[in-house]
Amino acid sequence: MKSEEILKIESELKISVPGWYKQFLLNFPVELINDEEEGVFYSAHVVIDETKSSRDYCEEEWEEPFPKELLSVGWNGGCSCYCIKQADTEQNVYLFCHERGAIDPSETLTLDQFIEAWSE
């Protein structure tokens, strides 16, 4: 991904991408690229579309919708999405569980673990 595309993400979603994730996107690992863009999102339009889609979706039993400070960065293969928090300095990737309508703390990964999981 190019710097201009990251700026487009930030502008369209009104979110600040953490520096550590910007560096990841700028140096995206080739082994994570696939035809379907499943797993880790690597194009600006998919990050934007998936974040907007997550923000628009809310089930009745959820206490609140997908928080505005989250950015969708991947898909878990089911109906939940991986996300990062805009102010997070810890390099954590969270799973926003569609069944709970919230982040599942037991599924939190470091960026390295997230990359490793999708490199297999």
Rank of each mutant, 00 (worst) to 15 (best):
F24K: 05
F24R: 00
L25C: 04
L26S: 07
N27R: 03
P29I: 10
V30T: 13
V30M: 12
V30E: 15
E31Q: 14
L32K: 07
N34V: 09
D35K: 14
G39A: 01
G39M: 06
F41T: 05
Y42G: 07
Y42E: 06
H45R: 14
V47R: 05
T51M: 10
K52W: 01
K52S: 00
R55V: 02
D56C: 11
D56R: 10
Y57N: 02
Y57H: 02
Y57L: 12
C58S: 07
E61Y: 15
W62H: 04
E63F: 10
E63Y: 00
E64L: 06
P65V: 00
P65F: 02
E69F: 12
S72F: 04
S72A: 12
S72M: 03
V73T: 08
N76I: 02
G78I: 04
G78M: 01
C81W: 10
C81I: 14
Y82G: 03
I84E: 04
I84L: 12
I84Y: 12
K85W: 15
K85P: 10
Q86V: 15
A87R: 12
T89S: 14
E90H: 13
Q91H: 08
Q91K: 13
N92H: 11
N92G: 00
V93G: 01
V93K: 09
V93A: 03
F96P: 10
C97D: 15
C97N: 15
C97E: 14
C97Y: 07
H98I: 15
R100A: 15
G101A: 06
G101I: 08
A102V: 11
D104S: 12
D104W: 04
P105N: 09
S106T: 08
S106A: 02
E107D: 10
T108E: 08
T108G: 01
